[in-house]
């Protein structure tokens, strides 16, 4: 029994790590631009397919493929910012709808380029850590380590650098930030790059573990929505805590009951938060 619990805990930590990468990116984009990026799950998918293309098809080393995924998806983010969110800056609903359009285009591009079937990727890193009968593969360990590293880096970036300060200023009050001479265009571009590339790197790192399909973004975006609502929209630390909370609840319910029940539990959790405290567990101010 302890083995199962330990194993489930490890699984939950793994799920929490990549989901918090995705959710933090989504929150960052919302915080700075005020737009919910519906295509975020497809950015994750694009990261995974970068690995399929470079590592599986072209035999580049895995880590280079991951770095390329990060850069490529970050550039996709800049493209979205430039062509969609910037012209629609005063129309957040329009931005959301445009991102749905972008989602369809990315999905179709993946279908046309790689087909609808699952892409299987040979595991780039073999071996596993055994811990009191529970198993953690190095591949999963890599995801966890990368998530901790990237999120710590992002935290330091936002707290310590000038651009990070400017970004938080934009998130608090865009007009006031612009009055201080902060370039909104520059800050939103950087935020979009970081937000998208976090999703991309999550997709790239987990690609060998999940067998990418063009439609993998759907379940990811649903989970990410749950996490950002539970953590409070626009609240970065809240997103990480909510990701951990959600991952544990979901993984344990899946292990001991059923996957569909776990999905229902997650959604009901989100609805409860929306009804009782719409600002999320950690959100303080109203933003609607």
């Amino acid at each position: 029994m302890t083995e199962i619990i330990l194993q489930t805990t490890l699984n939950a930590v793994y799920a929490a790590s990549y989901m918090s990468l995705i959710a933090v990116g989504l929150v960052l984009i919302f915080g700075v631009m005020g737009v919910i990026n519906f295509a975020h799950g497809e950015l994750y998918m694009a990261g995974a397919y970068t690995v399929v293309a470079l590592y599986s098809h072209l035999n580049f080393p895995f880590l280079i493929a991951v770095a390329a995924g990060l850069a490529f998806v970050g550039l996709l983010g800049i493209l979205m910012e430039y062509s969609l969110f910037r012209p629609l800056r005063d129309n957040p609903l329009g931005g959301l709808i445009a991102s749905i359009g972008f989602l369809l285009m990315l999905q179709t591009a993946a279908v046309l380029g790689f087909g609808v079937r699952m892409a299987h990727i040979k595991p780039p890193i073999q071996g596993k850590i055994e811990l009191l009968g529970a198993v953690l593969t190095y591949q999963r360990f890599l995801v966890i380590a990368a998530a901790i590293l990237l999120l710590t880096g992002l935290y330091l970036f936002l707290r310590k650098t000038k651009i990070g300060w400017a970004m938080r200023a934009c998130a608090q009050d865009r007009e006031a930030a612009a009055l201080q001479g902060i370039s909104l265009n520059q800050i939103t571009r950087i935020a979009m790059f970081i937000g998208a590339s976090l999703a991309g790197v999550a997709g790239a790192l987990t690609a060998p573990l999940v067998s990418p399909t063009p439609y993998m973004g759907h379940s990811v975006i649903v989970t990410a929505f749950i996490i950002i609502i539970v953590g409070g929209i626009g609240h970065l630390e809240g997103a990480v805590v909510a990701a951990v909370l959600y991952a544990f609840v979901h993984t344990f319910v899946t292990t001991f009951y059923d996957g569909v029940v776990a999905d229902i539990v997650g959604l009901v959790l989100m609805l409860l938060v929306l009804v009782i405290k719409p600002t999320g567990l950690f959100g303080a101010r109203e933003r609607a």
Binding site: S83, L84, I97, A98, I100, G101, F102, L103, L104, M105, Q107, T108, A109, L112
Partner: peptide, 9 residues
């Protein structure tokens, strides 16, 4: 779907 997405945008 891509054409639909483009039309939407």
């Amino acid at each position: 779907p891509m054409i639909y997405g483009a039309l939407l945008i």
